[in-house]
């Protein structure tokens, strides 16, 4: 069983590796398209700017392989910026095309009285759709750090958190259910975060 963490220069991959390792899952960093396509599970991490991340994926010729992998039906988890990259586009500093695996877009969190941007801290998830990742998440607090959020149709939203007047999708899922994205950082969300990695491991085991 091989789990590949996409290596494209994204920040803090080390902490993702440490959290995955703590659940007894062995994962390998790679940017080799052949290795990615033959993986049993893929994790797309990410911290930082959307445009820079898409450029880095493009330079490593990973956009096509990631889109093909998503269509394979095998488990694919995007985390934080890695989740936002699953969408069609972002309006962060001008419009940037994303991977287009889940419909619609990524937009700036608007300023609201009493709510800071970025959202930085622990927020409480409300599960909208049960899937392998949301099965342990209802009412749990997970750790968020982000200034942008995704807008998409309800069928792609598996969990949300409230931030002022905005319902922020905290977990998203594609049509066939094999691609899941988490807006929060499971590697920084204590025991409830580790359960997300455990659930991902089970998704991979079940395939």
């Amino acid at each position: 069983m091989t789990i590949i963490i996409i290596d494209y220069g994204a920040g803090n991959i080390a902490n993702v590796m440490k959290a995955i390792a703590s659940t007894g899952l062995s994962a390998k960093l790679s940017h080799d398209p052949a290795e990615i396509l033959s993986a049993d599970g893929v994790v797309l991490p990410g911290v930082g700017a959307y445009g820079a991340a898409m450029s880095a994926l493009n330079e490593r010729q990973l956009i096509g392989p990631l889109q093909a992998y998503a269509k394979s039906g095998k488990p694919f988890l995007g985390v934080c910026l890695g989740m936002q990259l699953l969408f069609e586009r972002s309006t962060e500093f001008g419009e940037t095309a994303g991977l287009g695996i889940i419909p619609e877009d990524v937009v700036t969190l608007p300023q609201q009285q009493g709510y800071k941007v970025p959202q930085m801290g622990w927020n409480q998830n409300q599960v909208r759709q049960l899937n392998p990742i949301t099965s342990t998440l209802n009412d749990t607090y997970t750790y968020f750090v982000h200034s942008f959020y995704v807008r998409t149709a309800p069928q792609y939203i598996a969990a949300t958190v409230d931030y002022g007047q905005i319902e922020i999708p905290s977990v998203v899922v594609n049509d066939s259910g094999n691609v899941i994205g988490a807006q929060f950082h499971p590697e920084k969300s204590g025991k409830d975060g580790l359960l997300v990695w455990q659930s991902f491991k089970e998704m991979v085991d079940d395939k």
Partner: peptide, 8 residues
């Protein structure tokens, strides 16, 4: 609910 206050 909203963002929790952090104890550090």
């Amino acid at each position: 609910m909203t963002l929790a206050k952090r104890i550090v």
